[in-house]
Design a protein around this nucleic acid. Structure first.
Lengths: 409, 409
DNA sequence: TTATATAGTTCAAGCAATAAACTAACTAGC
DNA sequence: GCTAGTTAGTTTATTGCTTGAACTATATAA
């Protein structure tokens, strides 16, 4: 019905509210209902008025602004055999788009979606970034981004803003990667705006798991409005979505389920802690426990070695995954009590291994968080490999929908 | 400077914003700055205008509304030896107040603060509520509340709203205690408005630890704007404050640190889980591990037995508290990674035992959440025994400050 | 007593939403 | 094929709230 994210009058606390805030709030409200409308359906002004509760006059005036800003577009009239004057369909302008980018251990990637969220261009470039300095990676990504931007422009799509997802702790305010153990980065300041110069909405930096969580939120109804996304990669990342918002905590680093303590007497973790979930359920941990770790092969080769070992019911592999599942259960149980969440979405290798992980996970949950506290829904990610990419793009799009006044208007 | 809580235009998402929202937002902004001003200082309209950024004209008009509603009061002019016309001091109306109430295992309590937050009346009635049905407890509390209300009225303070704190999981919407293990309550619907009939702001139901956390937020700068409050009682409760707001999660039951898993191979918990923090650091657990559990004595007697045993360096007691401290560390480490919090406030028996708990707690933290992730500030609660009481009252007060338009206006 | 400075109020103007009237564009039915 | 009915979108007057400037009120300083 109404767009949940459009919290009206989003001035900072402590700032006087004026009528401009009302306008901004209603701009977001109108744009939000258009953005939320199902793919084929093009709402008319009258329908927007009915659905938002605004008057037709207000909607007309607001839509005019959004058309001027190039965010919305009018389609022709659609006389659909109903009585009365047909309405003028409206849609998110397909000639504008946002770019998602991703730096990961094995690849860099960039992709563009238009404002309706449909993918226009997408390119993945395999590249070993493990323990590579940031400069060459950024140079390579910059070239890729320019290429993808040109490809989008060739299709008539102009980029308004971008998002970059990185597997590590980030601080968007200062565009800094605080720590990305698997890239070997620590306190690295990135020139993110340099990747895509001259964008009205700039470029935002995201944690990979957070971006992927946002992709889940935008795409399927996999997790609803409240869920914990757990992404199994080399490390174990997490993204916490609460009331359809990414919950980032006071400093922006919330949701790190990978470092919940699941075994106080456990092994040291890459984060410096002890017995973190990652030390048992991270890729390296599972591979070596399963005995499929081989330094000559890539991670995806190791992964297929593991899955075939599992289908062959190879004991060490079964045990390794079982242990990972149980530990996942402990971490989820603890997390669910702290943030009161009942739905878990598994991503990354957890999605691949879901078949084997689920039984020990459920077992563990019923032991550590039984009854009323049991997280009932365990699903797997719907956005696949490129979840982080889509999430980064989608989240920029969403920020536009929530604050359209930043464009021209 | 400005009141952090006064988020402008707080209509529900999906509702059109109109000029009324602006007014509501600015009412809260003005009232917030008055409420935030230090005890002795009485702001004038001009000072409010300067501090909020509103014009003098708007402030005058808004203050008029707040005076009409009986929320603010004018003091006389205060010619303070400065040039120019002296300003008219404003303060929170001391003739209006809010009531906090508490049901706990050993007592029931009720107290009134005026709108400036100073305590007017307070009464604690010892009463063994353990495994008592809810009806007689509510009857007793109702009588106590009426008495305290009359005492406040005698002092010229009219009650506008109330809050009730209960040691258990609650749902305020339906005024239901979902589970309070130590009272033996389960899915008990309480007639909270019946306790204090005819209040314009009604009566709100709180979890005890959450209320106490709010008291910490309101009183000292003990935890700043972001902290985890851990309350050691018979059970172990928790309250999570993030950006000066109580974080309650999607269903309102967040912050239950007492049930973070700290020992996967541990003992069963009253919540049905296994190895929860409460099974090691709850009062019953500590008392019995220390060997000071004696069914004939009250809990406060057991507690003094424990503290004297500790000062005598009695080994079993030292060990019990040490273990509790270490487990606290594990739980805090996990929590800090999930919600990104760096400050912990210890309340209840954790405050009493702080001296002995701190070393193992710090030790444990540096092991499980080292370096950048270390929760740096461990403090003890400033609001003492009656933290929950004060918190319940204070939070009703705060809700008034955030939405003053609910009164008359 | 006068000049100056500060507090608070009054009043016209601007902006955004609303409600009601109005124009536009289509279907249904005779 | 014309008219009545129906729905879409625009125009216009009204309302509510902030703003800014002018104005009144009340103090200190010289």
């Amino acid at each position: 019905m109404a767009y949940t994210a459009g919290a009206p009058a989003q001035t900072d606390a402590g700032t006087p509210g004026s009528m401009g805030d009302v306008r901004r709030s209603n701009l977001a409200l109108v744009l939000g209902t258009v953005a939320q409308s199902p793919a084929g359906i093009h709402l008319t002004r009258a329908q927007i008025a009915a659905s938002t509760g605004l008057t037709k006059a207000s909607v007309s005036s607001i839509v005019l602004d959004l058309l001027d800003a190039g965010i919305l577009r009018e389609l022709g009239l659609n006389p659909q055999g109903e009585r009365g004057r047909p309405g003028m369909g409206l849609e998110m302008n397909p000639a504008r788009g946002v770019m998602g980018m991703e730096i990961n251990v094995d690849y860099i990637a960039a992709g563009v979606t238009d404002l309706s969220g449909t993918v226009v261009v997408q390119e993945i470039l395999e590249r070993d970034n493990r323990d590579s300095a940031s400069a060459p990676v950024m140079t390579a990504l910059s070239a890729l981004a320019a290429e993808v931007r040109a490809a989008a422009a060739a299709k008539g799509v102009e980029i308004l803003g971008g998002g970059l997802a990185v597997p590590g702790l980030v601080d968007d305010g200062s565009s800094t990667v605080i720590t990305a153990p698997n890239l070997g980065w620590r306190d690295v300041k990135l020139d993110v705006t340099g990747l895509l110069p001259g964008l009205p909405l700039g470029v935002t930096l995201f944690n990979e798991a957070n971006a992927a969580a946002l992709a889940e939120l935008a795409r399927g109804p996999s997790g609803g409005k409240d869920f914990l996304f757990i992404s199994g990669e080399v490390g174990v990342g997490g993204g916490l979505v609460i009331k359809s918002e990414l919950f980032t905590g006071p400093e922006g680093h919330a949701g790190e389920v990978g470092h919940v303590v699941v075994d106080p007497d456990g092994r040291p973790c890459s984060c410096g802690g002890t017995g973190c979930l990652e030390t048992i359920a991270g890729q390296d941990a599972i591979f070596s426990a399963a005995g499929v770790a081989d330094k000559r092969q890539t991670r995806s080769e190791s992964m297929s070695a593991l899955t075939s070992a599992l289908t062959d019911e190879e004991p060490a592999s079964l045990l390794a995954v079982q242990r990972a599942g149980r530990s996942l259960g402990v971490a989820v149980a603890s997390t669910s009590r702290i943030v009161d969440i009942k739905t878990v979405v598994l991503g990354g290798h957890f999605a691949v291994l879901e078949r084997w992980l689920r039984p020990p996970l459920l077992d563990s949950l019923s032991r550590y968080a039984p009854g009323k506290f049991l997280p009932e829904h365990i699903t797997t990610a719907v956005a696949g490999e490129n979840g982080a990419l889509l999430g980064a793009a989608g989240s920029v799009l969403r920020s536009l929908v929530e604050a359209p006044h930043r464009l021209h208007s």
